[in-house]
């Protein structure tokens, strides 16, 4: 059966392409979703997209991923750096989760150098612009990336 991946965008990511394009690039969230959907087609997986500015709504959505999706690709935006609730939701969901960021958070303000959610995710990808999402999707599902298979 086809794997199902939830792509979740946190606060302010609906403003992509419209704010601070120097940091986040000129692509809108819809552009990114279209690119991710095209990649998903290539990798033969189903993707669904969700965005919310509200921490509680993100918590609820992640909770509801449990048993329903095979992986989560999450850009939690600023909540990354302080939301213990989001971290607990990821743990509770028991779904493999990959953390993605558009910018290299380690080049930015000190408060962005800490991710509350990183310890409960499989791994983290940051700094590659919209391509971070593509890398994240491949990390979640592309089996042929396993060099032990070559």
């Amino acid at each position: 059966m086809r794997k199902r991946i939830a792509v979740i965008h946190g606060p302010n990511l609906n403003m992509l392409g419209k704010r601070e394009v120097g940091i986040y690039g000129g692509k809108t969230m819809e552009d990114i979703n279209a690119t991710v959907a095209a990649e998903a087609l290539k990798l033969d997986v189903t993707v669904e997209f969700y965005q919310s500015n509200t921490e509680g709504e993100l918590v609820t959505f992640i909770q509801q991923c449990r048993g329903r999706v095979d992986g989560i690709l999450l850009n939690a935006g600023a909540y990354t750096h302080y939301s213990v609730a989001l971290r607990d939701a990821i743990s509770a969901a028991q779904v493999p989760t990959v953390e993605a960021h558009i910018s290299n958070i380690y080049k930015r303000e000190a408060f962005r150098h800490i991710s509350m959610i990183a310890p409960v995710c499989i791994g983290q990808i940051c700094g590659f612009g919209a391509f971070s999402y593509i890398v994240g999707l491949r990390a979640l599902i592309e089996d042929r990336l396993d060099p032990w298979l070559v």
Binding site: K107, I134, D146
Partner: peptide, 30 residues
């Protein structure tokens, strides 16, 4: 904490040996 992360374009961590292959994808795209 990584002291080299701020001078890198980006960071990929946690995917086992896949991390290297994903990094190559990212670098080629870049």
């Amino acid at each position: 904490k990584s002291v080299i992360a701020p001078v890198c374009v980006g960071v990929i961590s946690g995917f086992g040996k896949k991390s290297y292959l994903l990094a190559l994808d990212a670098l080629v795209n870049l």
